[in-house]
């Protein structure tokens, strides 16, 4: 579903991604971990082109992200084509970024109604189903500021799902939450993984990675240091840097 090939990315003089390659199969769940500033969030943001890359290639579902290849040369995609690519990629942010001037229900309806032109009553029915799925049907009329962090994040997941994405990206979805609210969000993500959604998850939740992840990638200093089956690598980390990192987060 996702193929990332030799991706490099600089912010000014600092190279945050120094040639990263990885594959996510259809229905696979890849957890990306690493110390802060290691480039793991940047990598995720490159996949749905919130950041542009300096070299390398990223494909999602066979489509090259950001460019079209014609006559052996790359051409920048038009803004409309870029938007179309993003419709198929759901993104969940660390700080939720729900639209504060719209209710939970309106937040979930916004994408289908505005982007896809779905009729309002149809979008409402579907949005209610999604809110039901994340356990928030009774909060449909609430504004984001009236919801807890965990509830806001679950609405944000429902908002992304409303676009029927092929791929879901999670950028530290539980890092801004109070500890007792983390599990309700992870439960929704666990359900989503079980339903066969392809997911890339940047996280510090090793328990979630061990339980749900098909693959675990440890990034440090802009390169992939360790990768493998999460249950195996977490039980027996091969690299010293990964071992040190686990010592700090576990």
């Amino acid at each position: 579903m996702v193929r990332i090939s030799s991706v490099r990315k600089c912010f000014g003089a600092v190279e945050v991604l120094k040639g990263i390659s990885l594959d996510v199969p259809v229905g696979g769940v890849v957890c990306v971990v690493g110390p802060s500033g290691s480039g793991k969030s940047t990598l995720l943001r490159c996949v749905n082109r919130l950041e542009t890359i300096d070299s390398g290639r990223i494909w999602v579902d066979g489509d090259l992200i950001g460019y079209a290849e014609r006559d052996g040369r790359l051409h920048h995609l038009s803004p409309a084509a870029l938007s179309r690519q993003k419709q198929d990629i759901g993104m969940v942010f660390q700080r939720f970024h729900l639209f504060p001037h719209r209710t939970a229900l309106e937040n979930v309806m916004e994408g289908p109604v505005v982007v896809r032109g779905v009729p309002k009553d149809k979008a409402r029915t579907r949005a209610m189903e999604l809110l039901e799925r994340v356990g928030l049907a009774d909060r449909a009329g609430h504004y984001p500021a009236q919801l807890s962090g965990g509830q806001q994040q679950r609405v944000a997941i429902a908002r992304s799902l409303a676009m029927d994405p092929k791929l879901m990206l999670f950028d530290e979805p539980t890092s801004a939450l109070d500890p007792e609210l983390v599990q309700e969000v992870l439960a929704v993500m666990r359900d989503l993984a079980a339903s066969g959604m392809t997911m890339m998850v940047v996280t510090h939740e090793m328990g979630f990675a061990r339980e749900v992840g098909d693959d675990l990638i440890f990034i440090d200093g802009g390169v992939v240091v360790e990768r493998g089956n999460p249950r195996e690598v977490l039980a027996a980390p091969r690299h010293e840097r990964f071992r040190a990192f686990l010592g700090q987060v576990l």
Binding site: N48, K86, I89, G111
Partner: peptide, 9 residues
């Protein structure tokens, strides 16, 4: 960013 991620122009 959230709006762009939904595919809005």
């Amino acid at each position: 960013e959230a709006a762009e991620s939904l595919g809005m122009s």
